[in-house]
Design a binder for these strands. Structure first.
Lengths: 207, 207
DNA sequence: ACTTGATTACACCGATCTGTGTAATTAATG
DNA sequence: CATTAATTACACAGATCGGTGTAATCAAGT
């Protein structure tokens, strides 16, 4: 039951915004009484915390080459953008919505962003990149930038644009990139041409 | 009076979030009656629209070289981040908060983001960049990425990281960059080292 | 059959929300 | 001074908010 509550809260919070969704709405959506919800979560704040904690997924370990892992991030991002329910990064959205007041929310958001950055950094170190720290930061900028842009534009091609930029940054750092489909910035699309139409249903909102 | 209402709404909406600020709060902050507020704005929605419209500033024309204008964007961004009240991009925040429900909000956000992209694109064309469209998109990713990262991390150095990445992208496109302070990604900082401490008061939140 | 624990329905609290109606007050204009 | 327009105070509407209290019901497990 607790899982069902959390999963419904996740869906509604992410889709409509945290402040926009009341506990009554969540309970009604599941078809349970509000009392039951409060038996599992003592307050909405704790439900919000659990929602964000549940979004804090670790990047799964992979045996693929580091470069493919890094660039694969942008492919997964693009699929995420194209999936139906995508609505940006839940952590960034939460901070944007709840303001700096809620320090706990900001803390978990920082932790998530930093974990992603460290994931990039470690892969870059494996590649022997000199300034792995700095380049990792730059890659997260491309990730979050494409997420923000897709949030407002509904244009999954933003992920491809980010990927092309990432390739350039990697090459510049001396990393050998597959080359194959690169052609520098050539494949990057013009955002005013492609947008709209979302694909499958999915759960969306990795980041 | 209308101006005063709008300016106060701007401050509160941006600082605390749109949903988090009631019309009573705005009126009380100014010291006027709620009735007066509603005499100037027929509904909160219209006040929100006016707030976002007021944030839609045009990038001021400049006679400086295109490269300096482009890179200067990130310097202004960094100053914005360091200013006290900075809380991310008001348009992205509004979309994140109000959801896809409110189509008018999303539309103005798209218009703003696109205007910024076109500003980059035109400068890149002046520089003779082949794929000005694509590179302009990539630059906006760095801008929005650094904004999102600073929003959660409170780390103005994200603007510098974005600037360094932008330099690499520009060089890769054949643009002559000042060189002086570049040194590739070398000056990029590690985010876990620098954060906190905000500067002057300002109005913050360009994007 | 009995107990235990979860869930239910439902009323209710105080607070806050957007928005309105109204009559008095104030300020500027002729 | 008289007219007009803006602003005021204030009560109020209807909705929703997060959260609680309570007694009945339901579903195991032993």
């Amino acid at each position: 039951m607790k899982a069902r509550i959390l999963e419904t809260a996740d869906l509604l919070f992410y889709q409509r915004g945290i402040r926009a969704v009341g506990v009554d709405t969540i309970a009604a959506e599941i078809g349970i009484s509000k009392r039951t919800l409060y038996n599992h979560f003592p307050s909405k704040d704790e439900l919000i915390a659990a929602y964000l904690a549940g979004r804090f997924t670790k990047a799964p370990p992979s045996d693929k080459p580091p470069v493919e892992q890094i660039l694969g991030t942008f492919d997964r991002l693009e699929r995420g953008f194209a999936s139906k329910g995508f609505r940006g990064c839940p952590f960034v959205n939460a901070v944007a919505e709840l303001g700096t007041e809620d320090q706990s929310v900001r803390k978990i958001a920082v932790a998530f962003k930093e974990s992603r950055r460290l994931w990039f950094r470690d892969l870059l170190k494996q590649l022997g990149v000199a300034d792995a720290e700095g380049l990792a930061t730059q890659l997260t900028l491309l990730v979050d930038g494409s997420i923000a842009q897709d949030l407002v534009r509904n244009d999954p091609s933003m992920a491809r644009a980010a990927k092309e930029a990432a390739k350039v940054l990697l090459k510049n750092a001396g990393v050998e990139v597959s080359g194959q489909e690169s052609a520098a910035t050539a494949t990057t699309t013009n955002p005013s041409s492609s947008p709209r139409t979302r694909g499958p249903i999915r759960r969306g909102g990795a980041a």
